[in-house]
Amino acid sequence: MLSFRKFFHVSIAFFALTSVIAIKAEGSGSSYIDNGVYYSDIEIPINFEKEQIKALESGIIFNLELNLKIVDIRNWRLDRDIGELTQVYAIEFNAFTRRYTVSNKNTGRQASMAMIREVSEYLSAIKKLPLVDDSLLDLDADYTVILDSRLRAQGMSPWMKTISFWRESLDSDLEQIQWQLFR
């Protein structure tokens, strides 16, 4: 039978906003040129919350979305966006192999890991991410790379996430990281 607690939860759900945990992470990034292409090495310490691990093991797929923006920061004028790159990694757990698979949605490359710690480590250090062709850049300009990262549970509507307010949020936004393109 329906308990008062459940009823209470349902009624509160109306007013609950979609809560997103902002993970404070001291990430860093750096860029370098190799054969006329600028690459970036990114460090974004990602720690999966308990509820997120539980969701993964229950078959929920997570996406780690990295949104990189190259911005020309200009004094006394509006900043100019040079380009934007979105890199998506899908993280899923296979109950049969008992392994986590991380798939880069942009390249199709897959990595398989036995432990969630490995997944965290794998995603926390992204190496040689191609950013922009050297020919598109003005060497006198002051370019900044801005990285916004977020972890999102797939297959669950915002409503479902809202109504699951009593447990830790499955979605998390990571702290924004910025660095100069030219060192």
């Binding site: 459940k6 349902v10 759900a13 969701a55 229950s58 479902m160 109504i163």
Partner: peptide
């Protein structure tokens, strides 16, 4: 089965 189980409560409340 795992996904359904995980979303059981929110689906029920919905």
């Amino acid at each position: 089965y795992g996904r359904l189980n995980f979303m059981k409560d929110p689906i029920q409340y919905s």
